[in-house]
Simulated scan of single mutants.
Amino acid sequence: MTRSSSPDPARRSERSRQAVLTAAAELVAEVGFGKLTIEAIAARAGVGKQTIYRWWPSKGAVVFDAFQAANENASGSLALPDTGDLAADLRAVLRPTADQLADPGFDNTGRGLVSEHQRDPALLREYRERLLDPLLEVTRERLRTAREAGQIDGDADLDLAVELLYGPMYYRWLHGLGPLDHAYADRLVDGVLRALRP
């Protein structure tokens, strides 16, 4: 039996896609989001600019996909533990969030994406659907099971509780208001749980 020596277009396309994502991640960390260009990404990835535009509508979309790919490789699927200890479970998600926001390597990417979300409704919608809404929903679901177990007030507004958990951390990050560390994440969890106590 003879093997075909013709290249597999699907494999070539996936290789090119991965090269673009890697190039975007490296370049945004090196030069910042504002100075990043599609031309530079294409040159580093070894693809044509038209290849990038065939898969992504904007620079923000490429960087968002690169960010998502890195996070999926690092953390696997999005889930909150349910050990029965609500405070420990919430710390298990807020501590890594604090670590990421405090990481200088994330700062260029994160701030660039936040800025792009304000100008690009399609990118904001994708960010909400693929990242923010799933994170808020798994947190809301963990709080729902805690409410059913009597660990938090039966009338607790779960949407507000989720905003109370994540909002102060992102506010502190956006405005550079102080350290983002495990101690802050723990204080935040303790404060929110005091407010939700039955």
Rank of each mutant, 00 (worst) to 15 (best):
G48V: 09
D107F: 12
L86I: 01
L196R: 01
A195V: 09
S16I: 08
T83L: 06
L188N: 15
E72K: 13
A74R: 11
R194A: 11
A156M: 06
A66D: 04
S5E: 05
S58K: 02
Y171I: 08
G48L: 08
E72T: 14
R111D: 10
T51K: 09
L136P: 00
Q50Y: 10
R3G: 12
R197H: 11
G60R: 00
D99N: 09
G112M: 10
D120R: 00
N71C: 07
R119L: 12
A88D: 02
A149V: 07
E116F: 00
L131Q: 07
P9G: 00
T145V: 15
D103C: 04
A122L: 14
T109G: 04
R11W: 06
P121Q: 05
R172N: 11
I41T: 09
V31L: 10
I52A: 04
L124P: 06
R15D: 15
T109L: 11
L177W: 07
Q151C: 03
L177N: 06
G60E: 03
A61D: 10
L131D: 02
D186S: 10
T139I: 03
A45H: 05
K59W: 01
D157A: 00
P134K: 12
N71W: 12
A25T: 02
V47E: 05
F33P: 03
A161G: 04
A74N: 07
E129K: 13
T145R: 15
D153Q: 14
L143P: 03
R142W: 02
F106D: 04
A69R: 15
A98F: 02
L113W: 06
L132R: 15
D181K: 05
A29F: 07
N71L: 13
A42S: 02
Q100F: 15
